[in-house]
Amino acid sequence: MKYNWNWGIFWQLSPDGRGTYLDTLIAGLGWTLATALSAWVIALILGIIVGVVRTTPVRWLRLLGDAWVEVFRNVPLLVQMFLWFFVFPELLPASVGVWLKQLPRSAFYTAVLCLGLYTSARVAEQTRAGIQSLARGQRMAGIALGLTLPQTYRFVLLPMALRIVMPPLTSEFLNVIKNSAVALTIGLVELTASARSIQEFSFQVFEAFTAATLIYMFLNLIVVAGMRWLEKRVAIPGLIGPGQAMPQAGH
């Protein structure tokens, strides 16, 4: 194979008008970060709520939570992305649909929403597993003390459950960063799309994707290190590891 290696490509001007090819990459990284972090916030908030709901004694709430998880985790992310971007606006009243499609950065908002909901199903599954791994007596002890059910979750069950599921949640955090690449299919120029545009303009495919690969890895290593630090910080004296029981990861 004959290939002209050119690592200096990143300092050359890109025809996309953003400056150098390095600037293209950095802009892509910015969108990847914005998409992944926003989606992660949505996923955590919704996922914890849905996870809690699935362990409550209220039957219809549990069914609702189960349905949520099964819908969002059983349809491929790519299909969900297309559904939200191409199909969903058509289902709305015409004027709202048009407004939505013409919204500046509509690909970004759609990607955040889609990725957030998809990941929330996975976070919900982890949260449920964490709560169920706690002894039934913990719930009883909270209730017997006179705490309401929401208080029992807030002060007794969730603090322990979330500590226990921190390792699987770390994986979900990494997934949300990696999965944000799917957003390129609806036109969001995030990191992977930026690498591809470098390749298309310059034909330096190896350099472009090597750079993207390294950036993804570096980003994820930072997340791993951050979560390890957090795990240590919230570790409970007298317990081995963050929790004694290992929940089943929800797959």
């Binding site: 002894a135 007596g137 009883m140 002890a141 006179g146 309401t148 322990m160």
Partner: peptide, 20 residues
């Protein structure tokens, strides 16, 4: 029931202290 439970102390076989 919540108010009633607050007036009855309960001690469990496995203690059920809050570990965190």
């Amino acid at each position: 029931l919540t108010r009633l439970r607050a007036q009855i102390g309960m001690v469990f076989q496995h203690f059920e202290l809050f570990p965190h």
